[in-house]
């Protein structure tokens, strides 16, 4: 207990907690839309595809400035999302295969570049491999401000475009009929998704970033049937996972942050799946039992009469 108090009094830890809290919030919010748009795994591909972007940015500028690295990650992230959509729309290859293909090839390219970075005299100290699993502890104050600012902007944009995103998610054809610029909104949404992934990779890592998009969102889905409530709940679950995961990983030496955030989020999901009223497994089982009983009783009565 003491160690937790000690940790919380540390200024850098406080910053990191604020950062992961905002990150969890933003990814919970955008993840809800991604889930309903069935684009959850595109987030996974984008996260993996961020690796080559980070490496290229580092190789070009030779310095580890977070903003520069994030710009690199954004470019390759967007490129990967575009490639997936292009492959799906122009060939018989289905989306899952396209996602897998792009994810692994971009990641392979990233690994190639990473080996080159590590051969540089400055590369060994670059700490770029922290991006693979996330190392929240390595985040410094200035990085947190970038992260927090970006996360806040993402949430803000999503909030003002809430009803537009809602209608293009639920019924794109209808949205077209309303005269909404579908193409632009889709592009904007993918950009926001890439944005949140890119912001998150330093804390959670490229491989596990997808969890922060998916897990809080489906956990939230169990508690409500309203989109706006789902997004709020998902944002809270995400924020909670971010904070708890960061605290656990800060307790030990060199523990990666991402995996603990993911485990926390999954625990919330399992609890939701089992115990949520109405939609939870246990509640559903009970209802089904009652219904079968009624059905059987009605059946026997029917035969008698």
């Amino acid at each position: 207990m003491n160690s937790i108090m000690l940790m919380l009094s540390d200024a850098n830890t406080q910053w990191v907690l604020v950062g992961t809290l905002l990150l969890g919030l933003a990814s919970g919010v955008l993840g809800s839309f991604a889930l309903l748009r069935k684009q959850s795994l595109i987030g996974d591909a984008v996260a993996h595809a961020a690796l080559p972007g980070i490496c290229i940015a580092f190789l070009l500028t030779g310095e580890r400035s977070l903003i520069v690295l994030l710009i690199g990650a954004t470019i390759t992230g967007l490129l990967s999302a575009y490639c997936i959509q292009y492959i799906v729309s122009s060939t018989i290859i289905k989306e899952d295969t396209a996602i897998c293909l792009i994810l692994s090839v971009f990641f392979g390219f990233g690994i190639v570049l990473l080996t080159k970075v590590q051969q540089l005299p400055s590369g060994n100290k670059s700490g770029l491999d922290a991006f693979i699993f996330g190392q929240a502890a390595s985040i410094v104050g200035s990085d947190v401000k970038v992260m927090a600012g970006a996360a806040a902007i993402l949430v803000f944009i999503t909030a003002i475009l809430f009803k537009e995103f809602k209608v293009i998610t639920f019924d794109p054809e209808f949205a077209k009929g309303l005269g909404l610029p579908i193409g632009f909104l889709n592009f904007l949404f993918i950009s926001l998704l890439v944005g949140v992934v890119v912001v998150g990779i330093q804390a959670v890592g490229v491989i596990l970033m997808a969890a922060l998009l998916i897990t809080p969102a489906i956990a939230a889905r169990y508690w409500t049937n309203s989109l706006s409530k789902m997004i709020v709940i998902s944002g809270m679950f995400g924020a909670f996972s971010g904070v708890v995961g960061t605290m656990i990983s800060a307790l030990g030496q060199g523990l990666p942050t991402g995996p603990f955030i993911v485990v926390t989020a999954t625990a919330i999901f399992v609890i939701s799946m089992l115990f949520a009223p109405e939609r939870g497994i246990i509640a559903k089982k009970i209802k089904q039992k009652i219904y079968y009983k009624q059905l059987n009783e009605a059946g026997t009565k029917g035969r008698v009469s």
Binding site: K287, Q288, Y291, Y292, L295, G299, G302
Partner: peptide
């Protein structure tokens, strides 16, 4: 009789 969750799709 066939039921999906709480809805009977076929009954007797």
């Amino acid at each position: 009789t066939v039921a999906y969750q709480k809805k009977a799709v076929l009954k007797n």
